[in-house]
């Protein structure tokens, strides 16, 4: 996986847990569309890094069926990182698009 994709994916994970806690399987299914993530398993090394970096936190919660699940939520640090990313992403994407279009012309 390229660094670019991995970096973007990490922010996508942060965005998915912004509005509430979610567990791994739930996040994985949301991201596995063949573009961002080839397989669901790719999520877990990223989650582990985000947790170690203090951008997400986790807690165990009861599930209706089966063993307790680990739920992930955004930390204040994570929220700040996501906000910064959102502010720079649009101009960044536009700039790349412009250069790509110019190269084609």
């Amino acid at each position: 996986m390229t660094n670019l994709r991995r970096g973007a994916l990490e922010y996508c994970i942060l965005a998915l847990v912004r509005d509430g806690e979610r567990y791994g399987l739930d996040i994985a299914r949301e991201l596995t569309d063949g573009v961002l993530m080839a397989g669901e398993g790719t999520l877990y090394p990223l989650l582990s890094r985000l947790r170690k970096g203090g951008l997400v936190a986790s807690s165990w919660q009861e599930s209706e069926s089966g063993p307790p699940r680990r739920y992930y939520r955004l930390t204040p640090d994570g929220r700040a990182a996501l906000d910064t990313f959102e502010k720079t992403w649009q101009p960044f994407r536009d700039a790349v698009d412009r250069v790509l279009a110019a190269g084609r012309a």
Partner: peptide, 28 residues
Amino acid sequence: RALGDPLTIAAGATGDDGGSPGPATVAS
């Protein structure tokens, strides 16, 4: 199968860590 090949997962985890622009690297 949906999880993917263990080697692919590992490649994403251990890939050239040096210059990853991801937030986790910066913060960790």
